[in-house]
Amino acid sequence: MPSENQSGMQCVECEGLLAEAIDGALHGSTLAAFEAHQQSCAACRAMVEEATAGMHWLKGLDEAEPPRNLVHNILAQTIGALPSEHAVVSPRGDGWFDKIKGRLATVFAPVATPRFAMSFGMAFFSITMLLSIAGLHLSDLRRLDLSSKGVTKTYYSTQARVIRYYENIRLVYEIESRVRDLRRVATPEKQQEEPTPKNQPKSDNRQDKDRRNQNYSRDGNQPELAASPAGNEQGMNKVTNQARLRGPQQAPPLSLVGCLNRRTA
């Protein structure tokens, strides 16, 4: 491979000037030396021919037409706005509303994208579905009484519901039954003195249950009125007096007395 010929130019120099030569930027003696080197060097001549041909092939490529919705998609993903063909470029600082709008658009640009909107939609759908499964409906909020009375009523009704649920648990009931049996063994005489609702008419069972339910939420140290037979004031007073005599330590829990009376009945 000839590195230098009669023109005095080396192949490396020729290669370095190739770009300018193809662009037509060589002049004077440099151009003459370059052409002379080509005449005498077949390799460099071939290189110039190929490079020239490659450039022509590339120059002949047409400009690709971008998709029509490309600008729309770009603007939607950046500023979340749709392109307007007749949009007038308003000078900066036209009004306070435009300024705020521009600033907000910049701040919310990362989230104002279709991807975020899709994620937000999916999250909203999931939450709504979970609330629906849980039995909570947004329409219930309209009927919500937010007055002081309403809130108090809701509080106490919820409390009573929770206590009722707790009392109706089988495990709790069995434990209370065991405790009651133990207490009865420990104090058999006192238990026997308590009135037994044997003569209670069957028609009063429902009222008795209702009253017991009403008393579930009361303090265990108080006497259980529902445990006494309906209308039997004497028996009720006996229980009350016994409870008072026993004092707070000996007084059986409210629910235990109720259960005992139920069992006895």
């Binding site: 971008p66 490309l70 600008v71 500023i79 392109p83 949009a87 007038v88 600033r103």
Partner: peptide
Amino acid sequence: GDAAAWQEIVQQYHRRIYN
């Protein structure tokens, strides 16, 4: 934060970048 300016930039350069 001028959205119109950004739109102008997009209109002006999207073809070149796409190519």
